[in-house]
Amino acid sequence: MGYGPLNSTRRQATLQRKRKEYLDWRTQTFGRGEDALDRQLWHQIRIDVPRTQPGCAEFHEERLQRSLERVLYCWAARHPASGYVQGINDLVTTFYRVFMQEGPSVDFEVVEADSFWCLTKLLDGIQDNYTHAQPGIQRQIVRMKELVARIDRDLAAHLDAHGVEFIQFAFRWMNCLLMRELSLDCVVRVWDTYLAEGGGAQGFSAFHTYVCAAFLLRWSRELRAMDFQEIMVFLQRPPTAAWTDRDVELLLSEAYVIKCLYDGSPSHLR
Rank of each mutant, 00 (worst) to 15 (best):
N89P: 09
V148P: 11
S183P: 05
R19W: 05
I151R: 15
V190R: 04
N89S: 14
L91S: 10
Y22A: 00
A206M: 09
Q236V: 08
P5R: 06
L251I: 04
A76S: 15
K20A: 13
W173C: 03
G2A: 10
P80N: 06
W42N: 12
H132N: 12
R270L: 15
R224W: 01
I151P: 10
N129Y: 04
Q168A: 14
W42Q: 02
G33W: 02
L223M: 00
T93F: 02
R139C: 07
A225N: 07
Q16L: 13
D124S: 14
A149F: 12
D124Y: 01
P239M: 07
L159F: 02
E21A: 13
S253Y: 15
S183D: 12
F108W: 08
E62C: 10
R46L: 08
L235V: 02
K121N: 03
R270V: 15
R246P: 03
A242T: 04
Q40L: 13
Q127M: 13
L123A: 08
V111F: 00
M226E: 07
Q236A: 12
L216K: 05
R19K: 02
L64W: 13
Y130P: 11
R17M: 10
R189H: 11
P5G: 00
Y73M: 04
P266A: 04
Y96M: 01
L195F: 06
D107Q: 09
L252W: 01
D154N: 00
W75L: 09
L41M: 08
L37Y: 02
E21M: 08
L91M: 09
L177M: 12
R78H: 11
I167K: 14
Q229R: 15
E181H: 03
T120K: 03
D227Y: 07
R11G: 15
W117K: 05
M174T: 11
R246W: 01
S220G: 07
V71F: 04
D48R: 08
G203T: 05
L178G: 02
E58L: 13
P54L: 06
G31C: 07
S115T: 07
D245N: 10
V71W: 08
Y3K: 10
F207H: 06
K259G: 08
R51K: 11
L15N: 08
D48A: 07
I126H: 06
P238I: 00
L159M: 05
G2K: 14
F116Q: 03
E102D: 06
R11V: 12
I137A: 09
K18G: 11
K121F: 07
L119A: 00
L261E: 14
R246L: 13
I126K: 02
